[in-house]
Every structure is written in structure tokens, then in C-alpha cells.
Design a protein around this nucleic acid. Structure first.
Length: 647
RNA sequence: GCCACUGUAGCUCAGUUGGCCAGAGCAGCUGAUUUGUAAUCAGCGGGUCGGGGGUUCGAAUCCCUCCAGUGGCUCCA
């Protein structure tokens, strides 16, 4: 007999070799129907896998991430089975579950699959699913496994098997399809009720550009049809939030194939938005002791040889620009720090002057492969809200805290609640990969961790993710469709001060090397605006939005009064305009709503006579009539509370 | 860059067994209307069907090529 402890702490005794399915049945039949796989101590088991030891067992359902993983992983097998039937001779790579669904990488030989073929494959899949096929596990020797796949002539599986230890190899069989797989899997296909193939893409075998490109098919499946419907609705909603779509609708930015791909053109309203963001940050930076600098868009190749960027990234960058007479070579700057290092170097610095904080909205250019470009999130020319802090090692922690304050300020004013922070430390097993002394690394890593703790920032700590030149703290947010984007970053750098031989004079009258911090709370203006658009679906906060108030005269008789209202608003720095088109009020309201202008002021005879405006709040409808001054005061209060930076 | 897909008016889209001067809605322009909380009415203008080449009596439609975009892969200082 063995003792099984359940998550609620209770324990029961079972025959040795009991399965998780039997355990579930002993609790209730309903549970047994819902359970997908089981966590036995630290391993995930198939439901019909015998348990031979005393263990903690958690029965996993669709509600558990691991349960979903089992469900999707099994779905991937069924998809593969269907493909093998429809496209005989297909070779199979890997087919894992992912965050939302699963994929399978396959080599179709001469065949091609496009999304047009999805319905046929989906039908075949549902055929197989309805047969209630079992997942049958078998454990075989490496030799047998190799023999099987040699006969099947599947080079990918052979490669995978060769990397496995003998004695740990298992196969899973559903219908006529046998797959090399560690498991776990569902007992059978009955829980799968809805299946959808999502897209098809090329994917290099094992992520290696030099190896063969396989066809990757993404899919998702659900235990209920209505879950699939809800997911498809979610995808539709996400599409509506796409920053490329909203950016076009709200006339924020555009691209021109004549200018070049990946080179965004900011339209007047987008520029207004961006400048508002920049000024918002500048204000916080000024209050935090930053000074603005400006540098040109190019620099001698030599500058980037000194910084080391040319050696590391030169081959994958825009080619140098050369002068006609002298043949000097310049590079478009891929980052601002080398220029800032030269600014630091142009003057003597005393320890008393540190930290020095140079800030610049610096536009940089990086070559991205054409297939990588994506709206404003991946471009070839973009502006970083960059700053470089040159400080003494003992000042690192305070500087980190200062930057965290600014980032919190931004996230708060823009209502980003779901962000993640990650501290990246070096891999202490491979210290030779990093530049800088042990002492410095330990000191700066400690400074980051303590700064986060003292600021109440919950950050995950990942070893081995640091850059070679220093540890860092990154901020990530998710866009509308759940894709993660890195926005803000704070990075310690021991490398550039060394390469540029930066110095300050210490209290001991000796020369010392400062530490450098790169930091960009937005990351890049382009990417940040993109994520912001998707985050708020184009309904920007009042303080930020390009057009805050639309004045809607009832008829052209009230345009003069509208102009008076407009100038009062403008005198109070409120961004407003008059919609004096020859249209009915309903029409003006509709168009203004679609433009996502936060406030509408409807003015007609009764407003003109009483020096008032009728306020309508975007999305909320009529908010009543009030004196102009009262409206202005309310608005100003609403704006100022959000953008004020308090340390 | 690679794989798959897409490209018709400013925008969203219809138009393929190849066949009369290529269509709609919105937007734009002109006029009428003087309007009260999510689309007033009428008229008009607008397209080398992404570019180039080819097949054909005939190409938006078929083929080749280039460009741009979409979804991924790889990378991201």
C-alpha cells in the first residue's frame, strides 16, 4: 500500500500502482471526467501511469497551467496524426505546447500547406478525436527507437533520439501515429471538443538559420466549444486594438515605401502625442537632476571601434557612409552612449560632481532584417528616451532607486498595471564571459536587488541573463494579444568607462573610473507609443491625448461663441478645436467619439446666453451644462494630478 | 534574410472556368439644409487593379520577377 497526499493536506492509502485516474474516481466521477493529468511530487504523470511510491499528488485540470499543457501537447499529437494521414511521408520535428496552444514543426517534402488547407486538416482531426483514440505509452531502448525511425526515415527524430540517454525513451501511440515523446498525455482524445488551426509559418530546425526550414503549424484546442468561440472573439478584439490600425485611424503615424520600410513618419497628431510624452518625462528627469544633451545622428567609425560596437554588431548594421574627398567613414549611430561618453570626457569631473546624468531623446538606426519589421514595435530608425548616468560605485543603489521612481511615475500616469520586472545577473559558473571585477559585479548586483526591495518592486531574478558588461533591470508589458515587449531598461555598464578611459578625481586626489548606467524608461518612443495605443485602445489619458476637447456648435450661428470658448481653453493650455462642419450634432458627436476625444462641448443658444457649455464625456454621454470657467478648472485639476512628479 | 499568405479609389472591401468603357460604402468636392447628444439629402470628381516582363485575339484574373505589407523563424547593443 502507498500513501497519497492531496493538495488540501489530506491523505489516503491506495494499492501500489494506483493511477491518478483511479485516485480521481475515488473522489468523484465528475472530477475524474475533468482531470487531464497529475502532478506526482515534481513530475507530471499520465492519468493511467501507475504510481509506485508514497507521493504528493495534484490532479490537474483545465484550470491548471500544467493541465492545459497536457491538453495542448496531446492536441499537437493528434494534429500530427491527421497530417500524417493527409500528407503521407511527412517527417516530424518537434510539437510542443506553448502559452496559447501548440505547434508542430514538420517537413512536408514536396508538399505545401497553407491556411486554405486548414479546414480539411481540422475535419480530419475532429474525425480522429471523435474516435476517442487512446494515448498508449511504451518505453523502448535507444536501439529500438533508432531502428523504428530509421525504417520511417525521419532524420529529425533520429537526431533527437541520439541526444537522449538510453533507458529514458518513450513513445506515444494514437491510432496509427507513433511519436517520440516524453509525455505526459491525456488518456484519450475525449476531452478535446474544439480544435482550430491558427497559422502556418516557416521555422528553422532547432532555431538554426543554417539548417533546414520546416513548416510550423500553430493550433489551439479547448475542452468546450464555447471556450474556442471566446478565444476567437478575443483575437478579434485584439485585432481592433492593433496599434497599426488605430495609428492609421487616429492619424498618428504612417510609413512610406518611398521613404523606406521600418522608417516611421510621425503625423502631426502622433507628434503631439509623442512630444507630450517626452515633455512629461523631461519634467520628471529635470526634477531628478538630469541635464539634457544633444548629439548628431552619425559618428566616425572610429567612435564605434572604441566602444566595441563595430566589432560586435558592425557586420549586421547599416554600411558606413563615406565622405567623397577624404574617404572618412561614418556610421549611423545605433546607440547614443558613445557620444555621451565623449561628452563626459570633454570635461574634468570631481567626485563631488557625480552623478552626472546626461539625457537625450536620441534617434538611432539599426538594421533589422526585412521580415522582422512590425509596425512601430520593430523599426529601423527610432528614438530612445536615453540617459547615461556616470556615478561612483557607492552611488549605484540610489541611482537605481531614482530610475525606478521615474518608471513607476510613468506606469502610474499611463495606468500600466500589469508589468513585470526582471533582474538579470551574471552566470557565476562562467565568469570569464563578463568584463569587470568580481567586487564590482557583486556590488552592483546587490545594489539592484536592494534598490528593488526598498522600492517595493517585485522583480524576478534570473542568473546568466546579464549583458557581458553588467547586470540589468528590465520592465516588460504585454500588448493586446498577450505578446510581451520589453520597454524600460536600466543597465549597469563597466565596459564603456573602461574603453573610453573615463575618469573622475576622487577625494584622495587620485583618478578613478566611474560606473555608467544606461537607462530608458520608455525604451523607445516608437515601441512605447505602440504598446500604449494597444493598452488603452487609442483612448489616451486626458493629459496626453493630442486633442483634449472638441467644441461642437449646434449650427453655424454659434461658431462665434465657439471661438470664444476655444480661446478661453487655449489660454489655459488646453488642446481644443471647433468642429464647424455643416453637419448635425448627432453626426459631430459620432465622429468625435470615433476620434476618441475625451471631452465634447456642445454649444447652442442656451449656452451662449448663459456663458456655459454642455459637456459630454467620451464614452459616457451627457454630463450636463456648466460655466466655461468651471469646466476649465475641472479639466486642469484632472490633468495636473496625473503628471506631477513626486519623488 | 527564410517559409507561407496578401496587395483593386484616401479608407474598408466586391469583382477568377480570362471577355463589353473596373464596382460599392465611407471619406473628398459642390449645392441644399441651420441642425440639441453616435451617421441630413442630392449631385460631382477620383483607380497605370503594387511596379516591370511574359502567355493570349483579349489579363485585375494565368506565369516569371521585383517592391511593399501580414503571420512566424533567427537576432535584438
Amino acid at each position: 500500500m502507498i500513501e497519497i497526499t492531496l493538495p488540501d493536506g489530506s491523505s489516503r492509502t491506495f494499492q501500489k500502482g494506483v493511477t491518478a485516474h483511479e485516485i480521481a474516481l475515488s473522489i468523484s466521477e465528475g472530477l475524474a471526467r475533468k482531470v487531464l493529468s497529475a502532478k506526482v511530487d515534481d513530475d507530471i504523470y499520465d492519468l493511467n501511469m501507475p504510481i509506485h511510491k508514497n507521493a504528493h499528488v495534484k490532479l490537474l485540470t483545465w484550470e491548471d497551467a500544467e493541465g492545459k499543457a497536457t491538453f495542448w501537447h496531446s492536441s499537437a499529437h493528434i494534429m500530427a496524426e491527421a497530417i500524417e494521414i493527409l500528407y503521407p511521408g511527412t517527417k516530424f520535428g518537434i510539437g510542443p505546447d506553448i502559452e496559447n496552444g501548440f505547434y508542430y514543426d514538420i517537413d512536408l517534402g514536396e508538399n505545401v500547406i497553407s491556411s486554405d488547407d486548414f479546414p480539411a486538416i481540422e475535419n480530419k482531426i475532429m474525425d480522429l478525436v471523435r474516435q476517442g483514440q487512446n494515448f498508449e505509452r511504451s518505453e523502448i531502448s535507444k536501439k529500438e527507437a533508432l531502428k523504428y525511425y530509421n525504417e520511417k526515415q525521419d532524420p529529425y527524430k533520429i537526431e533527437l533520439i541520439n541526444e537522449l540517454e538510453d533507458g529514458t525513451i518513450s513513445l506515444y501511440k494514437t491510432g496509427g501515429f507513433v511519436d517520440l515523446c516524453r509525455g505526459p498525455h491525456l488518456m484519450d482524445t475525449t476531452p478535446i471538443k474544439a480544435f482550430k488551426l491558427l497559422n502556418v509559418a516557416g521555422a528553422y530546425w532547432r532555431g538554426d538559420e543554417n539548417r533546414k526550414q520546416l513548416t510550423r503549424i500553430y493550433g489551439i484546442s479547448f475542452p468546450k466549444k464555447k471556450d474556442l468561440d471566446a478565444y476567437l472573439v478575443f483575437l478579434e478584439e485584439a485585432k481592433k486594438r492593433d496599434h497599426r490600425k488605430i495609428g492609421k485611424e487616429l492619424q498618428l503615424f504612417t510609413f512610406s515605401s518611398t521613404v523606406g520600410s521600418g522608417l516611421p513618419l510621425w503625423l502631426p497628431k502622433g507628434t503631439e502625442l509623442r512630444l507630450n510624452l517626452e515633455n512629461f518625462l523631461k519634467q520628471a528627469q529635470k526634477a531628478s537632476g538630469y541635464v539634457q544633451v544633444m548629439t548628431p545622428h552619425i559618428g566616425l567609425k572610429e567612435l564605434f571601434t572604441v566602444s566595441g560596437h563595430y566589432e560586435k554588431y558592425g557586420q549586421d548594421s547599416f554600411r558606413p557612409i563615406s565622405t567623397p574627398a577624404e574617404g572618412e567613414e561614418f556610421l549611423l549611430k545605433p546607440m547614443n552612449c558613445p557620444h555621451h561618453c565623449e561628452i563626459f570626457k570633454s570635461q574634468q569631473h570631481s567626485y563631488k560632481d557625480l552623478p552626472v546624468r546626461y539625457a537625450e531623446f536620441g534617434t538611432v538606426y539599426r538594421y533589422e532584417q526585412s521580415g522582422e519589421l512590425h509596425g512601430l514595435t520593430r523599426v529601423r530608425g527610432f528614438t530612445q528616451d536615453d540617459a547615461h548616468i556616470f556615478c561612483r560605485p557607492d552611488q549605484l543603489k540610489d541611482e537605481f532607486k531614482g530610475v525606478i521612481d521615474i518608471i513607476f511615475h510613468i506606469f502610474k500616469a499611463l495606468e500600466f498595471e500589469n508589468f513585470e520586472a526582471q533582474i538579470s545577473l551574471r552566470d557565476t559558473e562562467n565568469k570569464e564571459k563578463y568584463i569587470g571585477t568580481d567586487e564590482n559585479w557583486e556590488r552592483s548586483e546587490k545594489a539592484i536587488i536592494e534598490a528593488c526591495q526598498e522600492k517595493g518592486l517585485k522583480a524576478t531574478v534570473v542568473k546568466g541573463e546579464a549583458a557581458f558588461y553588467g547586470p540589468k533591470l528590465d520592465f516588460m508589458v504585454k500588448d493586446a494579444i498577450g505578446r510581451k515587449w520589453q520597454l524600460g531598461t536600466i543597465q549597469v555598464d563597466y565596459n564603456l568607462p573602461e574603453r573610453f578611459e573615463l575618469e573622475y578625481v576622487g577625494s584622495d586626489n587620485q583618478k578613478h573610473r566611474p560606473v555608467m548606467i544606461h537607462r530608458a524608461p520608455f525604451g523607445s518612443m516608437e515601441r512605447f507609443v505602440a504598446v500604449l495605443i494597444e493598452h488603452c485602445a487609442g483612448k489616451f489619458p486626458l493629459w496626453l491625448t493630442p486633442e483634449q476637447v472638441a467644441i461642437l456648435p449646434i449650427s453655424e450661428k454659434f461658431v462665434d461663441y465657439s471661438k470664444k470658448v476655444l480661446s478661453l481653453l487655449q489660454n489655459s493650455d488646453i488642446r481644443a478645436y471647433i468642429d464647424d462642419r455643416n453637419e448635425k450634432t448627432g453626426r459631430k458627436i459620432r465622429d468625435t467619439e470615433l476620434k476618441r476625444v475625451p471631452y465634447m462641448l456642445i454649444v447652442g443658444l442656451k449656452e451662449e446666453e448663459t456663458e456655459t457649455v454642455s459637456v459630454r464625456k467620451q464614452g459616457a454621454g451627457d454630463a450636463g451644462q456648466m460655466p466655461i470657467n468651471k469646466f476649465i478648472e475641472t479639466l486642469k485639476t484632472e490633468i495636473n494630478t496625473l503628471i506631477k512628479f513626486n519623488k
